[in-house]
Design a protein around this nucleic acid. Structure first.
Lengths: 350, 350
DNA sequence: TTCAAAAATGTAAGCGCTTACATTTTTATT
DNA sequence: AATAAAAATGTAAGCGCTTACATTTTTGAA
């Protein structure tokens, strides 16, 4: 954190100042900084001493302009308001940092139009690559990105059409596995609280996963009672109540993520229902909230950190002109206390 | 999201391309983009049409290099892993965006050395201004910032020495008010779970606030039982257990933030203690977690969104050469269900 | 020791934009 | 209609860096 300003100008020193101080050309200084092995040990030392002495640090705008790359990666996530993406993005950023890159995060509030805008903003600002959540979006965007040659990784899902680079997990299979466990516990009337399945591919895949399991178990998948809402504890609470006000109450409520599940849990408690005695509840994500909920949540564990890390690596290699492979990370089921045997045959309400 | 690439080169169009297409000089195009009122309505139209037609968007690196500013603001927060800073930063970013600025977020993991590094990284990358959390840091950093002429706003606290621009709240007074309420409920043995008071000024101020209230109520402030730990639910749980294993158990445990309080709550439940019957627990921040905790948390409400917004405005005006004033936002006490009367005189354990 | 090849260094041309200053056009005044 | 002042536009010089290419120095084989 120490620095000697250029004694000549009193200004922040430039490459040229270093070159002058070291008695070499600017090209050599640049090489010392970027490709030290193309330079003599001796020169390197002289130059680096000058760098230290002047407290020089390169101007990134100039570097970006000249080199045509910014060493900045953009990420657009649907929300920062809850912790769904926090851990994964944190890991992503840590990995980038190790590679000398900076992360620029924007959030789209789950709105497609805003996401498009953010993508444009970030690329225009020179993001060398992008991390996006999910795969469903206007094809024009993929064209735009392709035309501009911006490597992009899709995360938190694995892209069914293998056209785009993705580092994620299979939402459908993951949820199916959990649903199978629910069915094994004797539940036959199943409710589901999900985010908007039209706009959110992860949500849609998760619901499909439940239906898959039902079909495989000989139930009619269309019997699944789906309640769509937004991701928040409050909304989860309301959706659960709505589910419970039906003539035939589900004995198990599978939630699209942990946030909704915690809301459902709260509502159930408020309704004096015991968990999992009266009703089973499941989540998805395994964020911290899941393990500290009033009743620890049975949920799907997603390897968020690893996903962030892999995504970063994939992007770095894409930037370097390689062709990284998509990866599909395994999820596991996290059995805790909100899933139990279905209660006795459910009598119609009243 | 549509774009016609420069038909001449097939490349992303530049200012010069637009100028050529519009039949004007690059300077005029630049003016149309940056200072449209210095240009004829007619020219403006011609140029803007060319811009649309070519799908031109400016190269930010070049613009930054030439103009000497990046329109990028940096924020360094201690953590992204929990929601303490999320809402405030979100509001900060929204406000910046309205002013054409982009936010660059980095996290320091509550480590002073990392924070210094991040500050350097962000300024070197051309951040025009910085948002920092708290006021306590190596004076050299403030020098560095001053020398580089980087406007900086300190947030989540209000700086006691008025030397730096800050937009925050008074942690000490806020916690004192809450502590007074606790004391009014008849509690005399008070425990406190806090973050590291040596490194974290907000944490320190909050503890001081409790002591202030005790002193004012005729208690000995040094009787406050302080347990320091990191901010996480798990750590809060452990700290609470440790507090409860003392010979004289506190009847009220005031936590440094809501995350710790939720952990304490969990531990209390696990220990079969009723809340607030056996023990009262308080938080700080009023993040979403507080209202959805198993027992809704009595806590200090902090106007996070407003703080983020004000901080952004202050920075924007500082960038424009004005001298914005520090602001201290009021906090309020949020009475919910974890604070009650002290139980009967506490018998020594066993 | 000589000389070609390899390695190190230097030269200088941009990267795409902003802006001070110069020039031209418009406006308002007489 | 003539003219000075104001407004609009153009010219061109950088901003600080990277890198293709040219030049110089070093290396090592003959």
């Amino acid at each position: 954190m120490e620095e000697v300003t250029n004694s000549l100008t009193g200004e922040v020193p430039t490459l040229a100042d270093v070159a002058a101080a070291a008695g070499v050309s600017t090209a050599t200084v640049s090489r010392c900084l970027n490709t030290p092995d193309r330079v003599t040990k001796k020169t390197l030392k002289i130059v680096m001493d000058a760098v230290d002495q002047l407290g020089y640090s390169p101007n990134y705008s100039a570097r970006a302009l000249a080199a045509g790359r910014t060493n900045t990666i953009g990420a657009i996530i649907p929300t920062m308001e809850n912790a769904i993406f926090a851990r994964g993005i944190q890991a992503f950023q840590e990995e980038l940092q190790q590679n000398g890159c900076t992360l620029l995060v924007a959030s789209s509030s789950y709105r497609e139009d805003l996401e498009e805008e953010q993508i444009k903003t970030l690329t225009v600002r020179g993001a060398d690559a992008l991390l996006l959540i999910g795969y469903q979006r206007n094809p024009q965007i993929y064209n735009y990105l392709a035309k501009r040659n911006i490597p992009t990784v899709l995360t938190w899902a694995s892209n069914p059409e293998k056209r785009h680079l993705s580092v994620g997990f299979n939402n459908r299979l993951a949820m199916r596995a959990l649903a199978e466990l629910v069915l094994q516990n004797g539940h036959t009337v199943i409710g589901c609280i999900s985010a908007d399945t039209a706009a959110n591919d992860r949500a849609r895949d998760r619901v499909s996963g439940i239906r898959d399991a039902m079909a495989a178990a000989g139930l009619d998948p269309s019997d699944l009672i789906v309640q769509e809402t937004q991701y928040s504890i409050e909304k989860g609470d309301m959706a659960f109540r709505s589910l419970m006000s039906r003539d035939v109450r589900p004995t198990a409520v599978m939630c699209g993520n942990d946030v909704l599940a915690v809301g459902a849990l709260r509502a159930a408690t408020a309704l004096n229902m015991s968990i999992p005695g009266d009703v089973s509840i499941t989540g998805f994500d395994d964020i911290e909230l899941a393990s500290v909920a009033p009743v620890p949540l049975t949920t799907v564990h997603v390897p968020h950190r690893r996903m962030g890390q892999c995504a970063a690596r994939a992007l770095m290699s894409a930037i370097n002109g390689e062709r990284p492979e998509s990866v599909e990370l395994p999820t596991t089921i996290c059995r805790r206390n909100t899933l139990g045997r279905a209660p006795q045959a459910d009598a119609p309400k009243r």
